[in-house]
Simulated scan of single mutants.
Amino acid sequence: MNILDIIKTRRNIKKFKKDPIDKSKVMEWLDAATWAPNHKMTEPWEILFLGPETREQINHKTNFGDAPVVFVVISKKGKTEVEREENIAATACFVQNYMLAAWAEGIGTFWSSVAISQRNRDILNISDEYDVIGVISSGFPEEIPEPKPRVAITEKVKELN
């Protein structure tokens, strides 16, 4: 699959097969994700893998679609508001890179904001020095949803003189 096909066919997967994923593959995709653009090479992302006990404590309504791999992505806040915004953007690029690398090998993902709540930040022991970017569930898709329509890019583009 070429990169345009990977981008256009990736979907949010809400239900996963129980089949395990080789942890070395997950680490390979995370390593590829580190090539995301990031201002001044801050590499602000950190990963927290969630085991069964932590997943149970968070009490996600669908148990993350029964995904075999679930992790939280956090981002260092930075010293200024501008640096914080740059770090959040860079970490979002990191997440997208991971999701595309996984999808290229048949692994679906779902990006959730469940860890943003103070209750879940406390369970995960995430200090105020970090922003929670999301929880990423990964696994072989139980089903792949149809694509949702997109607004034509021509309606989003403006040319300035």
Rank of each mutant, 00 (worst) to 15 (best):
V69S: 03
A36E: 10
N97K: 07
G139H: 00
A67T: 06
T34I: 08
N97S: 05
E53A: 15
L124K: 12
V73R: 13
L100G: 09
T154A: 15
T91V: 08
I13T: 04
S24Q: 14
K61F: 06
Q118M: 04
A89C: 05
K156W: 11
N38Q: 14
E43N: 02
L50P: 00
I88P: 07
L50C: 07
I126S: 03
Q118W: 06
P145H: 09
V73S: 01
S24V: 08
V70Y: 02
M27H: 10
S75V: 08
Q118L: 05
S113A: 04
I136C: 11
I133K: 01
S127P: 05
S127R: 15
P149F: 11
V157W: 00
I74L: 02
G134F: 06
E155H: 15
K17E: 15
I47N: 07
K8D: 11
E129L: 12
P141D: 10
D131Y: 06
M1A: 15
K14L: 03
E83R: 11
K158H: 15
I47M: 12
S117R: 05
K23Y: 09
E143L: 06
F16M: 10
T62K: 15
D66R: 01
R121K: 14
V69C: 03
K148T: 11
L124E: 00
P141M: 14
D66A: 07
V157G: 01
S117M: 01
A101H: 00
D131H: 08
P141Q: 13
E83V: 05
K18T: 10
G108M: 01
G134V: 10
I88R: 15
N12H: 06
Y130F: 13
I21Y: 13
I6M: 03
A90Y: 04
P149Q: 10
S117Y: 04
R150H: 14
T80L: 09
L160P: 00
W29N: 10
A152F: 05
K77Q: 02
K23M: 11
F49P: 01
K148P: 04
F49L: 13
A152M: 11
I7Y: 03
T42I: 06
I58T: 07
T91R: 12
S75L: 10
D5Y: 01
A89T: 03
K40R: 15
G106H: 13
T154E: 15
S138C: 12
E43L: 00
I13D: 05
R121M: 01
H60A: 13
K14A: 07
E85W: 02
G51S: 00
G139Y: 02
V135K: 09
L100K: 09
E56G: 14
K40M: 14
